[in-house]
Design a protein around this nucleic acid. Structure first.
Lengths: 294, 294
DNA sequence: CATGTTCTCTGACTTTAGTCAGAGAATTGT
DNA sequence: ACAATTCTCTGACTAAAGTCAGAGAACATG
């Protein structure tokens, strides 16, 4: 734990908390409790499922329900049951609700402008850039990586995205039936592992391992959502995969890859992987890498 | 109002609010309300005056009192009346209180470390730097500038600081009785104006004007606290002084300065001031500047 | 089609936060 | 020395936030 960095984070927190408070106050003073305003705002112009609102706002279902009733009483929203699932309810703004939301939006904008207004143009630009940087890295730090079941919808979605990208990027295209297969149950403990990286439940990347007792573990299916690139997620995933391999008893990790995947190759090299002769006959591979775990 | 910048600020807010919430939660879960934990923390190892705590935490005096009673009941603090002013009370931590505060501190540290831990070293450094930048600029944007009475303690403190700095910086030293005087009532409307820049009530800079109907306004006593330099405060103060001069009917602002004050001279030049022949016989001046207000 | 799960509601609560008025003691200003 | 001000405290409130248990409807699954 790095002391000075931790202090810096805490100092940042203190400064920023105050201003954030001010921004939230933009949601106050409209004669209704803050949760109601926040909910109104979160429903958005498109409307939203109640269960999703609850997740986003972190509210108890009973509480949420009451908040929605209050907004309905004010004729700001209408809650109806969703057409595709009779259990879930869907909230949408009425015309009045949209107007009220616009007011909230405007107030928040004014407060945000209050942060910028006293600054010179140059300072404003610096502030906006630094804020973007902080936001980006805080988001990166919120990404969690965990071993998961490779048969779930999310896992299969990740693999689908991975394949779809290969189709586009490989010079010769890509046909999953042509590659060395990796069945779901080969990627499950104890024969393997499947890791998913998530930001707030949403999958942003994956990576898999096949264990071979007494032989190197094989790394497969490593993918990072294009939207999440540049956050160091690939490196984190790789590290986590290696940790898992080590825990499963592997001394060496190896993998094959296609020459079109230049960032991946760069990542492997800079993470201590050495190129080795082909150890399998994967038709799409151009490079084979190997790393001894410390 | 700059749309994209405002959106950036609001986006930043959304990302950060979440993490800040997490940090504050470090103050929770100790079986007492958040205000109590915050108060305990704010009292600090040195203890603190109750009135100051109230200001820092933004609490109603009645509320504050109750919070302190609760902490006393838990034997975490002791409140006694201050030796130098029988009205104000002074809170200090007991041994138990110090231990409890250390726990809170540790928890907050752990949460802060949670922000950093998932990142690579390089990302950590970037994050810390960006946070410092954001903090610095947000603090800058919290500084307010207002016309005030030049006879108050704060105003006189500012002028004192200003003189003290001149003593150190002028090659020939500085003796206030030797300079052209600027009596407090010459710096009060309608004959002049005195501006103080503050961050949370604490004065960080000042600047004064003497008006001469039909003639240029004179700028005097411009000072920025060394701690607050590099925040663009000098430029803001100067702008505000010019605005006040314009409002008072002046078409031109002029000033004299000493060659040791290089940053000030740079500021004047870059703000549109042109050097002119001496227009008074200020013994400490080497340069005389003038600017026509737009 | 029986069973378990998910989602939403309602009712009945508790806790936290925050406000307001007034009183008493100490201090400051004139 | 008298009045005004500052600071803290108590009592009496209100509002907001949040929790818990249970029930009913809709859906998913074997």
């Amino acid at each position: 734990m790095d002391g000075p960095a931790v202090s810096a984070v805490r100092a940042f927190n203190r400064t920023v908390a105050e201003r954030i408070g001010a921004l939230n106050d933009g949601f106050l003073g409209r004669g209704r409790p803050m949760v109601e305003s926040r909910t109104l705002w979160e429903i958005g112009l498109e409307g939203a499922e109640v269960r999703e609102l609850r997740a986003r706002l972190g509210l108890d279902s009973g509480y949420m329900s009451r908040v929605l009733r209050a907004l309905e009483r004010e004729r700001l929203i209408k809650v109806e049951t969703s057409p595709d699932d009779g259990r879930v309810r869907f909230a949408r703004l009425t015309r009045t609700g949209r107007a009220e939301r616009a007011v909230l939006d405007q107030r928040a904008d004014r407060v945000a402008w209050g942060f910028l207004e006293p600054l010179t143009d140059q300072q404003r630009a610096t502030l906006v850039a630094a804020m973007a940087e902080v936001g980006r890295l805080l988001r990166a730090s919120l990404i969690t990586i965990a071993v998961e079941d490779p048969t779930t919808t999310d896992a299969r979605w990740c693999i689908g995205q991975y394949f779809a990208e290969l189709v586009v990027r490989f010079e010769a295209g890509f046909d999953p039936s042509n590659t060395i297969p990796a069945d779901a149950h080969d990627l499950m403990p104890p024969r393997g592992a499947f890791l998913i990286a998530r930001l707030h439940d949403r999958p942003l990347g994956c990576g898999a391992l096949k264990f071979h007792p007494g032989a190197p573990a094989e790394l497969k299916r490593m993918w990072v959502d294009p939207e999440a690139r540049g956050l160091g997620l690939g490196r984190r995933l790789l590290g986590e995969l290696e940790r898992q391999a080590g825990r499963a008893g592997a001394r060496v990790v190896r993998l094959e890859t296609n020459r079109a995947l230049v960032e991946a190759i760069r990542l492997y090299r800079s993470s201590g992987y050495r190129e080795v002769p082909a150890f399998n006959d994967e038709p799409y591979a151009h490079h084979w890498f190997e790393k001894e775990l410390a």
